[in-house]
Nucleic acid binder design. Structure first.
Length: 463
RNA sequence: GGUCCCAUCGUCUAUCGGUUAGGACAGUUGGUUUUCAUCCAACAAAGAGGGGUUCGAUUCCCCUUGGGACCGCCA
């Protein structure tokens, strides 16, 4: 049997971080088992599905390095097949037409609510021998769920799950406008696509029980199911669009790099011994459903930042610079061509104080901007002594024919001695004038990363 | 409310009956770096409660408590 996984988002909003993890797990398992991973866009909700979201989902997954096999599968293109299956189910007696009006259904729901009992469709039309069909109402097709017995699913993550069939209502498979619902479409497509492993969020558990009945009615092979626990917000609730760090885009725009996010998501709800950092290949080799826990996990920004920092510090300078360039052009502003080579050379120390690409961007402002702003508080720190030191520094600096750490160091040292101060006494005013802040990269790095003319210009401004 | 599920440091987790309950992030303290950050070291921090089973339970079972998911002609 072939090993096929899929990720099936609906394009009704930006890609959710939980969805990203689901996609990752599917992809990982497929790769590990030398199987295929497909992407299926579930766009049967015509009202809410948007093409822009579809595009965004695809590009987001590509950003993370999750490439699907073959073309993406567009569910709406397969609607006629879904309808055929509905008709077949009807013919075989596994489904029936329900002529209840929306009003009637709503009244039932109200009534149940008042009585405090759970609403389940009353199966009125399941056996409609004695009912007259109302002319004015277009029917929906409902699946004839089993009334007695239990349905068991051997879930690859949750273990054996058992539910009484009586709790599963006769769910709608074809709407009154003759379009298929999710339960039908997803099942038919999973079958058509020969999906062997359905890995999805815990919130789908009940759907699997419904869908299993469709598989059985159609005499189709039932796939393996794995329901992974949901990701919770820091408040401990299911992540919703209202949470501010819920979409993938939220992470990209603060400068999280893709390998770091992939690594974070991998370790959220899954573990392999004490290992924390996984290369892409390691994650493929080591991933398995046994390592997935059963309880939901909370998002932890600290951890995301920390892993991101680890990756920023460990990846190749060229690669980091490319990430940085891409990030900046998308979320900040295009880097001036003339600044590129300086930035490339400097990224090695700019990254030292950075947890995100955005931090690198902030650290690089003194290079990117020709004019720097100094706060009035910082300006106050430049006192009379500081000015003398700066004046002396300028004299020595101008004399230097070769600029390097080795030539600069004696200059700074001599100034410390001459003015009876410490490194901070010399370094701080210089840094404030050159960078515009008390904080910043190491002093030598700053001086060497700026043109001589620029250094002199910035220093002389205060005198 | 009904159905189903979950439960180890603040967070992510290890442990598959016998451990001083381990690691990582965050936190605290100290040290390197003649600033900040980095880096290094140390400290602090957990088996929700109650019953069983067992020579022995964090681990297996039950109850309580707490938390969650689902309950659409959305997906």
């Amino acid at each position: 049997m072939s090993f096929n996984c899929r990720f099936a988002p609906s394009p009704t909003g930006p890609l959710h971080i939980g969805g990203v993890r689901t996609a990752l797990f599917n992809w990982l398992l497929a790769k590990k088992n030398k199987g295929k991973y497909f992407l299926r866009i579930e766009d049967t909700d015509k009202e809410r599905s948007k093409d822009e979201f579809k595009k965004q989902i695809i590009s987001s997954l590509a950003w993370l390095g999750i490439e699907h096999d073959g073309e993406e599968y567009i569910q709406s293109k397969n609607i006629s097949k879904h309808i055929n299956v509905a008709q077949e189910l009807l013919k075989k007696g596994f489904a029936y037409k329900c002529y209840c009006s929306e009003k009637e259904i709503n009244e039932q729901k109200e009534k149940c609510k008042k009585q405090g009992i759970p609403y389940v469709y009353n199966r009125k039309w399941r056996d409609a021998k004695d009912l007259t069909i109302p002319e004015s109402i277009k029917p929906v097709i409902r699946f004839k769920s089993k009334i007695s017995g239990n349905t068991i699913i051997k879930d690859l993550v949750q273990g054996e799950r058992n539910i009484s069939n009586s709790t599963i209502e006769d769910f709608v498979i074809l709407r009154k406008d003759e379009t298929p619902t999710y339960q039908l479409s997803a099942t038919v497509d999973d079958h058509e696509m020969k999906i062997s492993h359905v890995i999805r969020g815990d919130d789908h558990m009940i759907n699997s029980f419904k869908q299993k009945q469709i598989y059985e009615a159609m005499k189709w092979e039932v796939p393996n199911f794995a329901h992974i626990p949901l990701i919770h917000s820091e408040q401990g609730k299911k992540l919703s669009k209202r949470d501010n760090a819920s979409t993938l885009e939220d992470y990209i725009k603060i400068g999280i790099i893709s390998d770091a996010l992939r690594n974070y998501l991998l370790r959220l709800g899954w573990s392999y011994k004490d290992k924390e950092i996984f290369t892409k290949q390691e994650s493929i080799d080591l991933f398995d459903l046994n390592g997935v826990g059963k309880s939901p996990s909370k998002l932890d920004m600290n951890r995301i930042y920390s892993i991101n920092e680890t990756y920023i510090k460990s990846i190749d300078q060229k690669e980091l610079f490319n990430f940085f360039k891409e990030y900046v052009s998308k979320y900040k502003k295009t880097i001036d061509q003339s600044k590129e080579s300086v930035l490339f050379k400097s990224i090695g120390f700019l990254k030292n104080k950075a947890k995100t690409l955005e931090d690198i961007w902030n650290n690089a402002q003194y290079i990117i901007n020709d004019k720097i702003e100094i706060s009035s508080d910082d300006k106050k720190l430049i006192d009379g002594l500081s000015k003398k030191i700066i004046k002396d520094f300028i004299d020595e600096y101008e004399k230097l024919s070769l600029l390097s750490r080795e030539t600069l160091e004696p200059v700074i040292k001599s100034l410390i001695d001459k003015h009876q101060t410490n490194f901070k006494g010399v370094g701080q005013p210089l840094r404030i004038l050159l960078v515009g802040s008390k904080f910043g990269p190491g002093l030598y790095d700053i001086i060497l990363s700026l043109d001589k003319t620029k250094v002199l210009k910035r220093l002389k401004e205060i005198l």
